[in-house]
């Protein structure tokens, strides 16, 4: 799969962030116990971080040797990045997931999951609303029975008032 010649939009930035992260990890691992002993708690983390740094340098060199992403006239770099990495569906769905996570606590598992499922199916292009609602309700009922009843996993915010 080495046939890919051009860099992906944002690839260089991502690789540099990875390198920066690896360097930070190395420094943080050093701070655990310094070079106190061969068997210190920091030994393996330092080794792992060092491996990361070396690998990241190599990845960065490879990426920098590749030609930059193809420039389409009239498309800015940011737009090219968004098109390749963050298409509308990914952004919308990720936002929905984040909303779902925040709603889990106040609304409880059943309500928030139901809203998420119905909204998610709609956003992803399933326009048969009744069908979506029925499928969501049935699957949630199944999940609820299996987890809460059979496995005594206490799902957040029980059925309660809903």
């Amino acid at each position: 799969m080495t046939s890919r010649k051009r860099r992906l939009p944002g690839e260089l930035v991502f690789v540099l962030v990875a390198l920066l992260f690896a360097l930070t990890a190395l420094w943080q691992s050093y701070r655990i116990a310094g070079l106190a002993s061969w068997s210190s708690p920091g030994a393996v983390p330092m080794l792992a971080a060092l491996v990361m740094v070396v690998a990241a340098i190599r990845i960065a060199l490879t990426a920098s040797r590749r030609p930059p992403p193809a420039q389409v006239p009239g498309v800015t770099r940011a737009a090219a990045f968004a098109q390749a990495l963050l298409p509308r569906a990914v952004v919308a769905f990720t936002l929905l997931i984040v909303l779902y996570m925040f709603a889990l606590d106040p609304l409880g598992f059943v309500v928030s999951s139901f809203l998420f499922l119905v909204a998610g199916m709609w956003v992803l292009g399933s326009r048969r609303l009744v069908h979506n609602v029925v499928v969501s309700a049935l699957s949630l009922a199944a999940i609820y029975v299996v987890f809460q009843t059979a496995f005594s996993v206490v799902l957040p915010g029980v059925l309660g008032a809903c």
Binding site: L107, G160, A161, C162
Partner: peptide
Amino acid sequence: TLAALALSA
């Protein structure tokens, strides 16, 4: 709904 939920809790 939220208020009802909170009350019942």
